[in-house]
């Protein structure tokens, strides 16, 4: 699985891409923060919701690896399963800047 599925991005109208990337860069930190907060509070329901939201953004922009982790987090949140969530969140946070720069480099 790649950080960025360029074929997905290429399907998008080229004109909106810079705006989407910018939007991604402005909305994602907050979502990541929400995910972290929910995990810290052990609020798994909120974790699932926040992860779902970030997953939506990631999928649209072809950020497959991030989307995948978000999906796991969402499923774990919905299943009330708190194992490994912190590891996943750390991975997610590490992936974010890489993904963003990959998007910006397009």
């Amino acid at each position: 699985m790649q950080v960025l599925a360029t074929e997905t991005v290429k399907q998008l109208p080229a004109a909106i891409l810079p705006r989407l990337v910018k939007l991604f860069s402005t909305t994602s930190p907050e979502l990541l923060e929400n995910i972290q907060q929910a995990a810290t509070d052990n609020n798994l329901r909120a974790l699932a919701e926040a992860a779902h939201k970030l997953k939506g953004s990631c999928l649209s922009l072809g950020a497959e690896q991030m989307a995948d982790i978000c999906k796991d987090l969402q499923e774990k949140g919905e299943a009330n399963d708190a194992t490994d969530i912190h590891t996943k969140i750390r991975e997610l946070k590490q992936l974010y800047p890489i993904t963003l720069s990959a998007l910006q480099a397009l």
């Binding site: 109208p13 939007l23 939201k53």
Partner: peptide, 16 residues
């Protein structure tokens, strides 16, 4: 759609 990115994506695809 509540996600702003997806709003733009979907509306611009439909716009196209």
């Amino acid at each position: 759609e509540d996600n702003p990115i997806n709003q733009i994506v979907a509306s611009s695809i439909l716009d196209e």
